[in-house]
Design a protein around this nucleic acid. Structure first.
Lengths: 165, 165
DNA sequence: TATTGTTATACTCTATAACTATA
DNA sequence: TATAGTTATAGAGTATAACAATA
């Protein structure tokens, strides 16, 4: 049976509350000297993928190629990222993390996990694992819906018109 | 029993994935003509609180008073928000939504809930309610931790704790 | 002196559009 | 012509700092 309107409304409200809390927590956890959230997000996805093309990366991040190009330039300049020509396509590059980038990424992940661990002092391990599963399922559901709505690559009108009910 | 490091690490990864998916979904759901996310967040909290002071609002939003001041000016100029002198404090204002603001807020909430409902077509109502509870619990845990870490400044916990239902 | 709110300025992140080089 | 990537410019959102008015 489908989700009721009231339940969906409640869920979206709680999501917004959670996101607000996350942003507040970020004030505490963020390292003013290190790379910002956007750059860390880029590094995280490259770390997951191993070696990716910029266009793929931009799609997964949900940002445009132009914005990503600046991030890549920054990360390359700071030594966190390296690129090489795609042997199969002279236009494209393959991106991967340098050793320094991997170290930085792991350190940031461990630091954030430690802070979260402290905050979840009253939680059981099962509760935390269950919350992670919920996040994963929600993310997968959203991604599937977005893919279904946006079949073409840079297809603008249909998806928007279809969504604007 | 505390949460293990690996579980916390997994949770934070899934949270980031979820937030990325939410941002991608926002591209589809956002109304380019209406107020942006920040303004909607301000309106949502005012709608919840009924009548609030700007400082309280900034605390709950996790932004500074300066940023909020601009948002308030925008929302007042667009007729979504009204303010009156706080009878108990000549420096402060009490903020509340206009009828137009309430209408706009409700319309935006209904629209987003409808989109979410469509996306959750394969979910049961119980699953969605459970996800909402998870979000709420996580948000509450983060807020509590932040209050504990930041005891100083103008942090009148009671008002926030009383409003966080 | 401390607090409320405002303005000025700068920074982060992203979008759009115009461009190049390759396919 | 279409795609990969870059650059330039603009916008949203927030922070910091200096300020005015009130407590």
């Amino acid at each position: 049976m489908a989700v009721e309107t009231g339940t969906a409304e409640q869920l979206i409200r709680k999501i917004y509350s959670f996101q607000r809390a996350m942003r507040c927590a970020h004030h505490i956890a963020a390292d003013p000297a290190g790379p910002g959230v956007a750059l860390q997000g880029v590094m995280r996805l490259i770390g997951d993928a191993g070696e990716v093309r910029a266009t793929d990366l931009a799609d997964r991040l949900g940002i445009g190629a132009a914005a990503l190009s600046r991030h890549i330039a920054d990360l390359e300049a700071s030594g966190h990222l390296k690129r090489r020509q795609d042997p199969a396509d002279g236009r494209a590059f393959l991106l991967s993390l340098t050793d320094e980038g991997q170290t930085s990424l792991r350190a940031a992940a461990a630091r954030r996990a430690g802070l979260l661990q402290e905050m979840l002092v009253d939680w059981s391990d099962e509760d935390a694992a269950s919350a992670a599963a919920t996040m994963e399922r929600l993310a997968a559901t959203l991604e599937n819906s977005l893919r279904a709505k946006k079949p073409g690559q840079h297809n603008q009108q249909q998806s928007i018109a279809g969504a604007a009910k």
